[in-house]
Each structure stands twice: as structure tokens, then as C-alpha cells.
Design a protein around this nucleic acid. Structure first.
Length: 803
RNA sequence: GCGGAUGUGGCGGAAUGGCAGACGCAUCAGACUCAAAAUCUGACGGGGGUGACCUCGUGAGGGUUCAAGUCCCUCCAUCCGCACCA
């Protein structure tokens, strides 16, 4: 009887061996492959089987690439600044630096259980001054390029986290982090001009091998639209209001105008009669939170008492205020065409404003409009010299026509807003700026970076709009680097996304004290070839990273414009009934016991086997028994055959080649769950075969190499048991020979009218005529009608159609 | 409201338009065992038939095709994203 498979002994043995004898070696000749995991923030909860999945997927892919002859960049690090780490520290009542270090140690221990082939020499930590020196350096560069600027304005404010937030961090009016309703707060903020890159962020997505879903989410977030800005003269005043519209073709149908309550002309437009109502409306709008404003189903508004003149026909149209118009998009003012816009229609109906139809489907005017006609196709009517045109054509031509007539211009708009970059929190990179009364905002000189985050007694957020750093007088008070006079430091810190926006660059040169990354290493090892992580960062981290990379390209730090060539989003592992694993739900499955009882390799295989990697999967502990049984049968197959010296029969050659083909194509297609089932299938077939002739050594060797990326310990052990001294990863991924895969005999299903009636065995090279004849013969007694058609699909099916 | 994904046995899931349910879990039966566990063998969508077989069946309803889980149309359900962006 062969030695039973002892996962504990075997896995420990190889763990030790890999430590002293790494298998991923850079000989300077191999091409590089950079496979990256989204780095974790060091949560106090550690990692569960859901986190495992992503790491296993990337490790399998990495090891596969290694076997294909690449030198692997497969690093790991810590996204340790920011709200999650700080909130955890506050909850536990310890300093974030301490809790972060502890959590990192714990997760590092857990990660070791995955046996991923991380290169820990490349480790980075965003809270390490040698790292955030460069996070600050990038900010200084952006400041110098005019991309970082200060602005006072009402921003998104989370009352629970007590800090300002970026637009991207507000989800359905709630804080992305804690779920609290986001309010507005007027604060002087550092902003990053990501909008300058809107067009490039949109256009360069073409090159990316990313899931369409993520590309679309980014495109929608950037939100490009084409249209025109149109100037409306205010009646009896020497002022104009500019509106933005994507439907200039409907200009003749504008029957009113709406300004955002925050519009700079809003209160100036009121008359003696309307003044009180207008002021009240503006005040009430300013008090509403995002959530309130979103939840208001019914339109509200107030008439200012003033009128605008339609530049096309001189029509007098009332100017209203309403909070359904956003102050910070377009010009904060719109022309309203109730006949052709749902929102304007609703507003006009409520406030009895006339509706003029200017586009008619099939040229016919609608008698009593009950809803807006919003399609941009139809014949233009009621529109002076535009009458009779096709509206879709006019829509395209109108901006230029308006521009030529001198009351507006063709324009493009984006939904993307600049990035609110200041956080009123302690646990982040200090923004390296000094405020001087004489010189204004001055960056900390580059040679003085890093600007260290000072030790502080009370790191809790203050909620006043100031960061806890503001209390440290000896830190705040400094001198101006330009004029030398007393000056004050900026006390806000950077958002948690600052470090993660560029960390992937640092892995390839993490000890460089002179540069963010050397040109040489950047060219040799970057960009990232494969990036694996959850979809939750689609418009956060992934957008910010692209922005940073483009900026660093522009200032010559890197020579590529996109950081992540290929992206894969793994699905989430959930608890029973698709409920997200969380501590509060009490449904977290820890990998620790599973590794102990079944071994790392079994858990790795099961993580893949649960379901398609891109879809969410429900975790069921019982399923792991199946892969564990497979592992044992697989092991026994090898052990029972390794010393038999079985002959390499034609059948074995065939099955070996088919196996290589199937595993490789499924792996290439990222169908990792079917790779595992493929191993099971071939294992079952080989067990059958081994009962007859035994399995030849070559096939057993191929088994060891194929399984190695998935179950690395077992791959190594089998390779050694087969008598080899080197690592299984010193091999090349096996190739297959299509000719050797061919069967001599094939099965063909014989159908009558599409229903299978028999299955016959024929020679693989049978002619069409012979095949059909054999097929008919097999179902002769059922061929009772007149045959009208015979379909022959070589190697698959014969369908005889009879009446 | 708009956009996307998903829907297949008791369960997780397989199927370049070509024999639906691979592979695995659970269950049942048998072998081994004093017994149990482990392991091995077999059965395992519904209905019918002693039987070789017949018949229905991939969320619902239509359609295209010799042939549809797969393509087209109309719905339904679940999940996700966006949401007054003019």
C-alpha cells in the first residue's frame, strides 16, 4: 500500500524549502510578467475565505505565467493609511500606528497560509515615511503644475467620520465608508484637477483589456455630453444668463428657465413682490442634505419675477429657481423645454407653464400632451426657419448655427468633478503645504520630504472642520520656505486613496531613496500586466490610479499612460443565501481551520471550484470534502504508478495530450472552476486506465506540472517522488500535440427529426456517405416516413428529417 | 426611471447552435467491517413501461432553424451599478 497523502507534513516541508530556495528567479533574460493583487488595508478582522479567492486566483495565474517562462513580479503590501485603519484604532482605543502594525503582522501570517508566491522583498506600506515621501512628492509636483489648488466651497461632509469626502466616496447620498447620510459643509479644501484629464481618461479606455462593466462605469462617471451654451438676455437688465443644453434643436420650445438656487444671480433676479419667497427658497435649499434633495420626489420651485429673452424669437420666458438644477454642472442654469424633457414637463405641469411642441413624430402635433416626447427624432415644427428639418440632424448642427449667430457656442460637458483631496483626519499623509501671509500657499521643499506625520496625544477627529494636527502648535508654526517669515502648516491630511493611486509603481523599486521609481526599473518591469481585485473600486481607486499614472507620464516619471493593462474582477464569496460575509452578520468563514484540516492545496482548489471566478458564490463548507477526496485519489494514482514503469501506450499519449489541451484552454479562458473539474475528470479516466496498463512516467510528470500552479505543494512533492531533484516550477508548461489527440473511433448521435434515436461508433475518418448509411442502418426500423433531408455534422451528429 | 449581470436536478455548477445535467456536494443501496468511520462499487430531473424504450423538461410566452440552455422578440424574478448631469 502506498503512503497516504499527508498534507500537513508535505505542505510544511515545501514551505521551508521555498524559503531557502525561491522558485521565482530573475536571471535578467526572462521577460517579466507583473501580476498584481489589490493590496489590502490591514483590517482587524483579518482575512476570510472571500479574500482568499482573489489571492488564489492571482497566484494560480502568476505561477502559470512563471511556468511559461516569465520572471514574475507578484508583490504584496499594505494600504494602511485612511479611515478604515483609523476608525478601527479609535474603536479599540489604541494609536492607529500600533493597531496597524499589529493587524499587518496578523494578516501577513494569514497570507502565508495561502502559499502565494509573493516577493516580500518588494513589500510596501503606505504609512512608511520612505513611501509617503513620494505620495507627498507627487502632490508637490501637482501643485507646481497647477493641478492641486485650494478652494472654499460646500463639500460633501460625513458627520460620523467627521471629514470631507470626494464625490466618488458618496454612494446614494451616503458615506461610502460608514453609511451615514452625507451633508454639506462649507470648507476650504485642497482639490486635484482630475477634470483636466477627463478626456484622456475617457479616450484611453479603448486600449484597456478590462471588463466592459468597469469601463462603462468609468465612462458614465466621467459623463461626457455634447451640446451648446446659449446666452439669454435678461429682460430690462444689462445682464445675460448662459445655459447649457444638449438639445439646442428644441430652443424654440423653451418656455421657461430654471437656475439652481445657488446660482450667483439667483437672489438678484427677485422683484419687490417675489423677494421674500425667493430668499426663503434659497435658504431652504441650502439647508437640505444630499439625501433630502435626492428623496424629494415632487418638484419644487419659485418664480423670480424676472424674464429672459429667447435669442431666436424674442419670446419672453419666466426665470424660476429650483433645486432640481445642479449648481456645479454646466452653467447652473437651464432652458426648459417641457414638451421634450420629462423633468421640465413635470415642472411646467405643476406650475402651469405653457408647453410648446417643437418636434413632431411623423410631422403630427400631439393634441393633449400627457408626457414629454423625449426622442431626438421627428420633424421640427413651431421653430421659424428651422421648421421641416429632421430633429436629429438639427441637434447636431444647431450648436454651430447658434455660435455663428453670436448668442452661444458649441460645447462639451463632463459630470466628473475635481477631487476633494483634504481630510480633516489624523491618520493620513500630511499635505506638504505651508501657508504664508506674504507668499500664500507654498509647497514644502522637495528635499525636506517626507513631512512626517507628528505624534499626537488626541488623534480623534474634531468635527470642527479642522484636523487634529491643528492642535499641535509646535508643528503648525513654522517658517515660510520662500521668505523665511513665520508661517503655518497645512493641517489637513490626504485621503486614503492617495497612496493606493501609485503604490504599484513603487513595488518595482521600493528601496530607491532618490526617485519614486528609477527609469530603468519602470521601463523594465512596468506597467502591471494583470490586476486582480473586487469591482468595488471601479470609480474610486481605479480611476484615481489612471489619473496619477497619466500625470506621472506627463512629468516624465513613467513611459506609459495606463497603469493596468488587464483587469480581472473576481466575484464575492458570500455566506448562505448570498449574504455578504461580515462580523455583524456572524457568517464569516475563516480559512484557518480549513487549512488545518484539509490543507492549503485543498482549500486553494476549492476556492476555485466553488463557481465561475467572475461571479459571486455562496460558500458551503461541505463541498471541500469533494476536492479533498480528489487530492487523495490523485496522490494515490501517482504513488501506485510511479514505480511501475508502465509503457507509454497510444491511449495514454492521447489522454495526456487531451488533458494538456483542456486544462490549458480552460485556464487561458480564466474558467478556473472548470479547470478543477477538468483535473477530476482526467483523474477519474486515468484511474480507470491504470487498472489495465498502469500510467507511464511521462504522463505522471505532466500531471505534476499541470497541477503545480493550483496545488503547488502537491505538485512539488509529486515531482520529487518521481525522482527529480529540482523544483516542479523549473519546468516549462507542457504543450500538446493536436495530432496525438485524435481518436480513431468516434461516436455519432443519430437523430430523427432532431431527437436522438441511437449512438453509433464509427471510424474517425469516415466519409459522409458511409456515415449516413451507417446511421440509417442503426435506426432502420424507425425510418417509416419519407426522408426529406439528411444533415451530417462530422464527428457529432446525423439528423434525418422524415415526414 | 436608465444601464448591466444572472435565472439549468435537492444543492454548487458543466455544455464552439449539434446526445442537457460534465465535475462535485447531499441522499439512497451494496461491498469491506463485530460495528462505525474512512474507502470502493452502483443509483440519483419528472411521468410512463416488466423491458429494450417512450415522453415531458434549462424563469414565462412567442419566433428563427433540420436542430435552441445557447440566436431574435415580448415579459417575469433576483442581484449590482447609476440616478433630477439639462
Amino acid at each position: 500500500m502506498a503512503t497516504p497523502y499527508n498534507h500537513r507534513e508535505i505542505e510544511q516541508k515545501w514551505r521551508k524549502k521555498w524559503e531557502t530556495d525561491p522558485v521565482n528567479v530573475n536571471d535578467g533574460k526572462k521577460p517579466k510578467y507583473y501580476c498584481l493583487d489589490m493590496f489590502p488595508y490591514p483590517s482587524g478582522n483579518g482575512i476570510h475565505v472571500g479574500h482568499w479567492r482573489g489571492y488564489v486566483i492571482s497566484d494560480v495565474w502568476s505561477r502559470y505565467k512563471m511556468l511559461q517562462g516569465y520572471y514574475l513580479i507578484h508583490p504584496m503590501g499594505w494600504d494602511a493609511f485612511g479611515l478604515p485603519a483609523e476608525n478601527y484604532a479609535i474603536k479599540m482605543g489604541v494609536h492607529p500606528a500600533k493597531s496597524t502594525a499589529e493587524n499587518i503582522a496578523n494578516i501577513k501570517r494569514q497570507l502565508a497560509e495561502i502559499a502565494a508566491i509573493y516577493d516580500w522583498d518588494r513589500e510596501v506600506n503606505t504609512t512608511d515615511p520612505e513611501f509617503y515621501k513620494w505620495t507627498q512628492w507627487i502632490f508637490v509636483k501637482m501643485f507646481k503644475e497647477g493641478l492641486a489648488y485650494e478652494k472654499e466651497m460646500p463639500i460633501n461632509w460625513c458627520p460620523s467620520c467627521k471629514t470631507g469626502l470626494a464625490n466618488e466616496e458618496v454612494v446614494n447620498g451616503k458615506c461610502e465608508r460608514c453609511g451615514e447620510d452625507v451633508t454639506k459643509k462649507n470648507l476650504k479644501q485642497w482639490m486635484l484637477k482630475i477634470t483636466k484629464y477627463a478626456e484622456r481618461l475617457l479616450a484611453d479606455m479603448d486600449q484597456l483589456d478590462w471588463p466592459e462593466k468597469v469601463k462603462k462605469m468609468q465612462a458614465d462617471w466621467i459623463g461626457k455630453s455634447y451640446g451648446a451654451e446659449v446666452d439669454f438676455q435678461i429682460k430690462d437688465r444689462d445682464e445675460k444668463i448662459t445655459v447649457y443644453t444638449t438639445r439646442p434643436d428644441t430652443l424654440y420650445g423653451a418656455t421657461f428657465m430654471v437656475l439652481a438656487p445657488e446660482h450667483k444671480l439667483a437672489s438678484k433676479l427677485s422683484t419687490d413682490e417675489t423677494k421674500e419667497a425667493v430668499e426663503k427658497y434659497i435658504y431652504e435649499a441650502s439647508m437640505k442634505s444630499n439625501v433630502d434633495r435626492l428623496q424629494d420626489k415632487e418638484k419644487t420651485g419659485v418664480f423670480t419675477g424676472s424674464y429672459a429673452i429667447n435669442p431666436l424669437n424674442g419670446a419672453k420666458i419666466p426665470i424660476w429657481l429650483s433645486d432640481y438644477v445642479l449648481a456645479d454642472y454646466g452653467t447652473g442654469a437651464i432652458m426648459c423645454v417641457p414638451a421634450h424633457d420629462d423633468r421640465d414637463f413635470e415642472f411646467a405641469t405643476k406650475f402651469n407653464i405653457p408647453i410648446i411642441q417643437v418636434i413632431a413624430k411623423d410631422g403630427k402635433e400631439i393634441e393633449n400632451m400627457t408626457e414629454a416626447y423625449t426622442e431626438a427624432s421627428g420633424i421640427v415644427i413651431n421653430s421659424g426657419d428651422w421648421n421641416g428639418m429632421e430633429s436629429s440632424v438639427l441637434k447636431k448642427e444647431a450648436p454651430e448655427m447658434i455660435e455663428k449667430r453670436g448668442f452661444g457656442k458649441k460645447t462639451t460637458n463632463y459630470k466628473l468633478r475635481d477631487w476633494v483631496f483634504s481630510r480633516q483626519r489624523y491618520w493620513g499623509e500630511p499635505i506638504p503645504i505651508i501657508h504664508c501671509d506674504e507668499c500664500g500657499a507654498v509647497p514644502v521643499p522637495e528635499e525636506q520630504l517626507p513631512l512626517l506625520l507628528p505624534e499626537v496625544e488626541s488623534y480623534q477627529p474634531t468635527g470642527t472642520g479642522e484636523s487634529p494636527l491643528a492642535d499641535i502648535e509646535e508643528w503648525v508654526n513654522t517658517t515660510c520656505p520662500v521668505c523665511g517669515k513665520p508661517a503655518k502648516r497645512e493641517t489637513n491630511t490626504m485621503p486614503q486613496w492617495a497612496g493606493s493611486s501609485w503604490y504599484f509603481l513603487r513595488y518595482v523599486d521600493n528601496k530607491n531613496s532618490k526617485e519614486l521609481v528609477s527609469k530603468e526599473n519602470a521601463e523594465k518591469y512596468l506597467p502591471v500586466d494583470m490586476y486582480i481585485g473586487g469591482v468595488e473600486h471601479a470609480v474610486l481607486h481605479l480611476l484615481y490610479s489612471r489619473f496619477y499614472t497619466k500625470f506621472l507620464y506627463d512629468i516624465g516619471v513613467v513611459n506609459f499612460k495606463e497603469p493596468f493593462t488587464k483587469l480581472f474582477n473576481q466575484g464575492m464569496i458570500t455566506g448562505k443565501n448570498g449574504i455578504k460575509m461580515s462580523k455583524s452578520k456572524g457568517n464569516i468563514v475563516s480559512p484557518d481551520e480549513l487549512v488545518r484540516d484539509y490543507g492549503c492545496d485543498s482549500l486553494r482548489l476549492y476556492e476555485l471550484f466553488v463557481g465561475p471566478p467572475e461571479l459571486d458564490s455562496e460558500w458551503d463548507d461541505r463541498g471541500i470534502d469533494g476536492v479533498y477526496r480528489f487530492m487523495n485519489r490523485f496522490w494515490n494514482l501517482v504513488m501506485e504508478n510511479k514505480d511501475k514503469n508502465a509503457k507509454e501506450t497510444k491511449e495514454l499519449v492521447k489522454i495526456r495530450n487531451k488533458m494538456i489541451y483542456d486544462i490549458t484552454t480552460r485556464l487561458e479562458a480564466f474558467n478556473l472552476n472548470t479547470v478543477v473539474s477538468g483535473f477530476m475528470e482526467y483523474n477519474n479516466k486515468l484511474i480507470e486506465l491504470s487498472k489495465k496498463d498502469g500510467i507511464d512516467i511521462k504522463t505522471l510528470e505532466v500531471l505534476a506540472i499541470l497541477i503545480a500552479p493550483f496545488a503547488p505543494h502537491m505538485g512539488e512533492e509529486i515531482w520529487q517522488q518521481l525522482g527529480h531533484k529540482n523544483s516542479v516550477f523549473d519546468n516549462e508548461w507542457p504543450s500538446y500535440d493536436e495530432a496525438a489527440m485524435k481518436d480513431d473511433e468516434i461516436e455519432i448521435a443519430i437523430q430523427i427529426n432532431g431527437k436522438t434515436r441511437a449512438v453509433i461508433q464509427v471510424a474517425a475518418d469516415i466519409s459522409k456517405e458511409d456515415a449516413i448509411a451507417a446511421g440509417k442502418n442503426a435506426v432502420a426500423e424507425k425510418l417509416t416516413g419519407t426522408i426529406v433531408k439528411e444533415i451530417y455534422v462530422p464527428g457529432r451528429i446525423i439528423n434525418i428529417v422524415q415526414k
